[in-house]
């Protein structure tokens, strides 16, 4: 392929994506209730495309067993078979159907990343809001602990912890969630710190409101927008971190289908000019790009509303 053809292809793919995004937005505007409709109208094509991709991924993850032509872990043919009409994307290094593993990978990789992010948020956001609201020694202790934990690079820290605790799925989820919750803590705390200086918080304190109501009714609703955006970004980080660990052979373990390890297992094909191993990597990239596009739109909207 000459550079010109590559360029043409790239332009065509981008155009197709934007058209798909436009179609999705048009359909979505018709199909949703009034309040959401108004928001959707402000979505740029990139964000519309992102939403479309996210919806597709969720669909594939939920209905994986129904969509996949072959089972996840079964050897169905010789190794490294090329693309044909039975095995649409060929087979992998052990002779398992590539397409089916790709589809099951959506469930495993995305599912685990989602659970991990949710856990990280549960820990980080609760402690962050608490630290900002209560202040004093609680804030000091939590902040210093987080400072120290954040002084070790995330990937290195998780490698260290995984060496110690082993690489089962629960430890993987727990280790990544704890490490990422420190980042969530920082954000939640700083967002909440900007809110607790507001007069309405002072008014609520003087009224004699308890801590629970202060956090849930007065602070959380005002911190929600940045936290939701952060959830999207955090998901991308967690997703990439888990994929990287799996790629290094230290994340999700075989025979489970997982995009990161699928790249690793079949990487040899790349030097022979076969792009099949790039597909799972592309699947990862596509999802993170999509989430980022949607988050970018939301952040832009939030900053626009402030003015």
């Amino acid at each position: 392929m000459g550079p010109l053809i590559v360029l043409l292809w790239a332009v065509a793919v981008i155009a197709a994506c934007l058209v798909a995004g436009w179609l999705f937005r048009t359909v979505a505007i018709v199909a949703t209730p009034h309040t959401i409709k108004r928001e959707l109208r402000t979505a740029p094509l990139t964000a519309s495309f992102g939403m479309l991709v996210i919806v597709i991924y969720i669909f594939v993850a939920i209905f994986a067993p129904l969509i996949a032509p072959f089972p996840e872990r079964e050897i169905v043919g010789p190794e490294y078979m090329p693309w044909d009409h039975i095995h649409l994307l060929g087979t992998d290094n052990l002779g398992r159907d590539m397409l089916s593993r790709l589809i099951f990978g959506a469930r495993n990789t995305v599912g685990i990343a989602f659970v991990t992010t949710a856990l990280a948020f549960l820990i980080g956001a609760i402690l962050g809001l608490l630290a900002a609201t209560v202040g004093g020694w609680l804030d000091q202790i939590l902040s210093r602990v987080v400072d120290v934990l954040m002084a070790i690079p995330a990937l290195i820290f998780s490698l260290l912890l995984l060496t110690i605790f082993g690489t089962s799925i629960p430890t993987l989820i727990l280790v990544i969630a704890v490490i990422d919750s420190t980042r969530v803590f920082r954000l939640a705390r700083s967002v909440a710190l900007n809110i607790v200086v507001m007069d309405y918080i002072e008014a609520a304190k003087l009224r004699g409101e308890g801590l629970w109501r202060l956090i849930t009714r007065e602070i959380l609703p005002n911190a929600l927008a940045p936290l939701v955006a952060e959830f999207g970004l955090r998901f991308c980080f967690v997703f990439l971190a888990i994929s990287a660990l799996s790629f290094l052979g230290l994340g999700l373990q075989p025979p489970m289908a997982d995009w990161g390890s699928m790249v690793k297992e079949n990487a040899t094909l790349i030097s022979f000019g076969d792009i099949t191993p790039l597909l799972p990597a592309g699947a990862i990239a596509l999802l993170t790009v999509s989430v980022n596009f949607v988050v970018d739109w939301q952040l832009h909207r939030a900053s626009g509303l402030k003015e």
Binding site: M198, D199, Y200, A203, A204, L206, R217, E218, P221, N222
Partner: peptide, 15 residues
């Protein structure tokens, strides 16, 4: 009770 200078920051915008 107290009434504040900046009504904008004295009322929770989400309630």
């Amino acid at each position: 009770q107290m009434i504040y200078q900046m009504a904008d920051t004295a009322l929770n915008p989400k309630l």
